[in-house]
């Protein structure tokens, strides 16, 4: 299934503490409030992710879902991956190796995407 709607890739800042998280939420609000948003958050730069940052990610996820959109995470830094695992929030998001993979995943069915990932892994 092809889609013509744009996929927005947004890079998350290095520090996602209380102040930065609030600022980030203000930045992404227009994206989230669009019709059926397709958003990828790139977490490759993240060096500090605290509870406020995770809450913002969940808020974004919640808002996007309410608008029948989708939010995916990509390129998790080691710190971000560990914190998401620690807080058990990793299982709430679809997580991809790269932003490109995440963006591409919007244009195909989930089973196809999984099949493709499996093939890639097998080929590697």
């Amino acid at each position: 299934m092809e889609t013509s709607r744009p996929v927005v890739v947004k890079r998350i800042p290095e520090r996602m503490n209380q102040t930065e998280a609030r600022k980030f939420l203000r930045d992404v609000e227009p994206l989230i409030n669009s019709d059926r948003p397709q958003i990828v958050f790139d977490l490759s730069l993240v060096r500090q992710l605290d509870v406020a940052g995770i809450e913002v990610l969940l808020q974004c996820m919640s808002q996007v879902m309410k608008r029948d959109g989708d939010l995916k995470l990509a390129s998790l830094s080691d710190h971000a991956a560990i914190i998401l695992e620690l807080t058990r929030t990793d299982r709430l998001f679809e997580i991809y190796e790269t932003s490109t993979d995440a963006a591409r995943s919007f244009s195909m069915f989930l089973p196809n995407m999984l099949r493709r990932q499996h093939q890639n892994r097998f080929a590697a």
């Binding site: 969940l58 608008r67 807080t87």
Partner: peptide, 23 residues
């Protein structure tokens, strides 16, 4: 309670987004 405020994160907004007809 978990330090993450799930209730706040997933709260329903006062104004619901309008759904497209036939969605």
């Amino acid at each position: 309670a978990s330090p993450i405020n799930y209730a706040e994160s997933f709260k329903t907004p006062d104004k619901q987004p309008e759904l497209t007809a036939g969605l």
